[in-house]
Measured scan of single mutants.
Amino acid sequence: QVNIAPGSLDKALNQYAAHSGFTLSVDASLTRGKQSNGLHGDYDVESGLQQLLDGSGLQVKPLGNNSWTLEP
């Protein structure tokens, strides 16, 4: 069960990665100043990332080996 409060997208993504045990490689300029609506409930990694990114204009991309990145 994930419980991440709304706020900074950077912070939300870092909390989610730490909670879910995956690696997220992101260029900080992509997420700077963006906000997230947070995340509450049970999600697989990709669904949770998509939910956190909702409205940010960013997309999640798998890199393999439980690693992910973001792209515009």
Rank of each mutant, 00 (worst) to 15 (best):
L9S: 03
Q59S: 11
S67F: 10
P6E: 05
S20D: 07
Q1F: 15
S20R: 13
G7H: 02
W68I: 07
D10V: 09
L30S: 03
G33H: 07
L52G: 00
I4N: 00
N65R: 07
G41P: 00
A18Y: 09
E71K: 02
Q35V: 13
H19L: 15
W68K: 04
A5G: 10
D44G: 08
A28G: 10
G64M: 03
N37C: 15
K34S: 02
Q35K: 13
L39G: 01
Q35R: 13
P62K: 15
D42S: 13
T69H: 07
Q50S: 11
Y43T: 03
V26L: 09
P62W: 15
S56A: 07
S36M: 01
F22A: 09
L24W: 06
S25Q: 14
V2Q: 05
G48F: 06
G33C: 13
G57M: 04
D42W: 15
S56C: 08
Q35N: 10
H19I: 15
T69V: 12
T23C: 14
V2C: 11
L24D: 06
N3R: 11
G64Y: 03
D42I: 15
N3W: 11
V60G: 09
G33K: 04
K61P: 02
L70V: 13
L9E: 03
S67D: 08
T69F: 09
A28M: 10
G57I: 04
Q1P: 12
S47Y: 09
S67M: 13
N66Q: 06
A17R: 05
S36D: 01
N37V: 09
E71W: 06
S20V: 15
T23V: 11
T69M: 12
K34T: 02
E46N: 06
N37K: 14
G21K: 07
L13I: 07
D10I: 13
G21C: 12
L70A: 06
F22L: 10
S25P: 03
D10F: 13
N65E: 10
Q59C: 14
Q1E: 11
Y16M: 04
G57V: 02
P6F: 05
G48Q: 02
L53A: 06
S29I: 10
I4Y: 03
D44I: 03
G33F: 05
A28N: 08
Q1A: 12
P6R: 08
Q50W: 11
D10N: 07
N37F: 10
D27I: 08
F22G: 06
Q59M: 13
A5I: 06
L70W: 02
N37A: 12
S56N: 04
L49M: 07
L52P: 00
D10L: 14
I4V: 05
V26Q: 03
H40G: 03
G55V: 02
G38H: 01
T31V: 14
A12W: 03
N65D: 11
Q35W: 15
A28S: 11
P6S: 08
W68P: 05
Q51W: 07
L63G: 07
L70G: 05
L58D: 00
D42P: 08
N14H: 13
S8P: 15
L9V: 03
Q35S: 11
L58W: 03
A12E: 02
P62D: 12
H40K: 12
D42M: 14
D10A: 12
D44Y: 04
Q15A: 12
L49P: 00
Q1N: 12
I4C: 06
G7F: 00
A18M: 12
S36E: 01
Q1K: 13
G38S: 01
A28H: 10
S29K: 11
S67Y: 10
G48C: 05
R32T: 10
L53D: 00
Q1C: 15
A12C: 15
S67K: 11
Y16W: 14
G57N: 08
G64H: 03
G41M: 02
Y16G: 03
W68G: 04
L9M: 04
E46H: 11
V45S: 05
K11Y: 13
L70Y: 03
A18K: 13
L24K: 05
L52K: 00
S8G: 06
A12Y: 02
H19M: 15
V60S: 11
S29V: 09
N65S: 08
L52A: 02
S20N: 11
L9W: 01
Q15L: 11
S29W: 11
Q50E: 10
A17H: 03
G48T: 03
G48N: 03
S56H: 10
Q51T: 12
Y43C: 07
K11M: 12
G7R: 01
G57T: 02
Q50D: 07
N66F: 07
S25W: 14
D42L: 14
V45W: 12
T31P: 02
V45L: 09
S47Q: 11
H40C: 15
Q59W: 10
K34P: 04
A5W: 08
A12K: 01
R32Y: 12
L70Q: 05
A28Y: 08
P72R: 08
R32G: 07
K61E: 01
Q1G: 12
V45M: 07
N14S: 14
Y43G: 02
T69E: 09
N65Q: 09
H19E: 14
D42K: 13
E46W: 14
D27E: 09
S47R: 11
